[in-house]
Design a protein around this nucleic acid. Sequence first.
DNA 1: AAAAGCGGCAACCGCTTTCTA
DNA 2: GTAGAAAGCGGTTGCCGCTTT
Length: 279
Amino acid sequence: MGRPPCCDKEGVKKGPWTPEEDIVLVSYVQEHGPGNWRAVPARTGLLRCSKSCRLRWTNYLRPGIRRGSFSDHEERLIVHLQALLGNRWAAIASYLPDRTDNDIKNFWNTHLKKKLLAQHHRATAAGLSSSSTPAPAPSQAALMAKGHPASSSAGSAAYALTARNISMMLSGWAPPGKGATAGNGNPATPGAADSASTGTSSELTDCSAASSASNSKPVLGPSSSPPPSMLACESEATATAGVPPLSAIESWLLLDDSGELPLALEEQLLDVALRNYAF
DNA sequence: AAAAGCGGCAACCGCTTTCTA
DNA sequence: GTAGAAAGCGGTTGCCGCTTT
């Protein structure tokens, strides 16, 4: 018994928001706070569905959103997080609090994808790309987390590795006796996606359960002091699979704009990002 | 100067997850 | 335990402005 789409009602307006609508929505949220979106259209008189209101608020009207071009540091951060997390834009966005997941997704699809591809081609032509050698398996976190574009939303959603999970791993929890299992090495395969609710997610649950400290998005950034340890969940796998140790990635993520990623690590991450997206 | 093509971005759609009665 | 509602998320679409021909 499916429920009717919330935006199918007659009289529901679609398309671009007008400044007047924005003002109404902002006024309402300022007064009542975000949430209970279902009530927003009725209470404000906006001829929009609740979903549209929420989206407009979170992606455009919410205070603290930075718009405009991405800095070089943000750009590299996104590339590396994408390599780790796959197309899990909400999780990636949690590392860039002033950017929305939609913004990051658009930026990736319109800029970074092409840029990476061009970079990859240049590297390949120069014989520098690591893909010219047998491709190492992506890191375990990347394997678990990446939502491959070929997989369905159901599949990608099954990778229950949220920013919180990453945070937990960053905080240094090591699964007892559980090295990073290589899995089938390809979560993008339908079977892998389907099984995520069993094997993969249970591993993630273990990670989650073992960490008691983290309960919100990780505090990462130039001002943060580095977590004391590395990404234990995948240390073993990365050590054997030829993927850069995550502690190095982690360290880089914590660098400020002046930080430099070692060339070899940069190339390997680029390779992971490229394979994640199946260029 | 006009038309066609292209790229960027806001918004929508459909699905999953979470919450609640 | 179950069903329905609400919220969250990622993929996709379509409009609009800019660039190229």
